[in-house]
C-alpha cells in the first residue's frame, strides 16, 4: 500500500518564530556567521520544493541539522572550517564588552567539542530540543544523544566550574 505524505510548511510562522534561533544555532554549530542564513533558507526551500519522504516532527530541529551539514560540506570543500572558528565568538554584532569571560570560555569549549557533541549541545541548550527530537533529527538513537550530551555537559561543566582557568 502506498500512503502519500505531504508536509506543508507554515513558512511565515516558521520564519517569524523559529528562523532567528535556527540561524543562531547553525552559526554556533558551524562557526560560519555568513553562510548560516543562506544554508537555512536553502534547507527550507528544498523542503518546500521537494518534501522529504519521511514525516518531520520538529521542523526547526530538522532544518538545523540539514543547514549545518550544508555549511560543513562547503567548509570541508574549502578547508575553511578552522578559519571560520578562529572568528568565533567575536563575530559581528557582538563585542567583547557584551560577553563575560565565562561566555568566552564557553564558546571556546563548545568549539573544542567533537562535532556531534557540539551539535547536540546547541540543540539542547540553545534550541531547547528534547533528547527524542534531537535523536530523530540527527537520525541517531536516543541513547547516543544521551551519551554525547552527558560527555559534552561534563566538559562544559568543568569550564564553568573553573571559570577562566582552562
Amino acid at each position: 500500500m502506498t500512503v502519500e505524505v505531504a508536509t506543508r510548511i507554515d513558512l511565515e510562522a516558521f520564519v517569524a518564530s523559529e528562523y532567528p534561533r535556527v540561524v543562531a544555532a547553525v552559526r554556533l554549530i558551524t562557526g560560519d556567521h555568513d553562510a548560516a542564513p543562506d544554508a537555512v533558507q536553502e534547507a527550507l526551500a528544498g523542503i518546500i520544493a521537494s518534501p522529504p519522504r519521511k514525516d518531520i516532527d520538529n521542523l526547526a530541529a530538522y532544518v538545523t541539522v540539514v543547514a549545518s551539514n550544508k555549511v560543513r560540506d562547503v567548509q570541508r570543500r574549502r578547508g575553511a572550517e578552522s578559519r571560520a572558528y578562529d572568528k568565533l565568538p567575536m563575530q559581528r554584532d557582538i563585542t567583547t564588552d557584551e560577553l563575560s569571560a565565562l561566555d568566552t570560555d564557553v564558546a571556546a569549549a563548545i568549539r573544542a567539542l567533537p562535532e556531534r557533541q557540539r551539535d547536540i549541545c546547541i540543540h539542547h541548550y540553545l534550541l531547547d530540543h528534547s533528547v527524542e527530537t534531537i535523536a530523530e533529527a540527527m537520525s541517531v538513537s536516543t541513547g547516543t544523544v544521551k551519551t554525547q550530551l552527558h560527555r559534552a555537559r561534563a566538559t562544559l561543566a568543568a569550564v564553568l566550574t573553573n571559570g577562566g582557568e582552562r
Binding site: 528562523y19 535556527v22 554556533l28 542564513p37 554584532d93 555537559r153
Partner: peptide, 14 residues
C-alpha cells in the same frame, strides 16, 4: 549553559 549560549547566539534577521 543556556544563559551563556543565549548571549553568544546571533539570531538571523527574518
Amino acid at each position: 549553559l543556556r544563559e551563556s549560549l543565549g548571549r553568544l547566539a546571533q539570531p538571523g534577521d527574518p
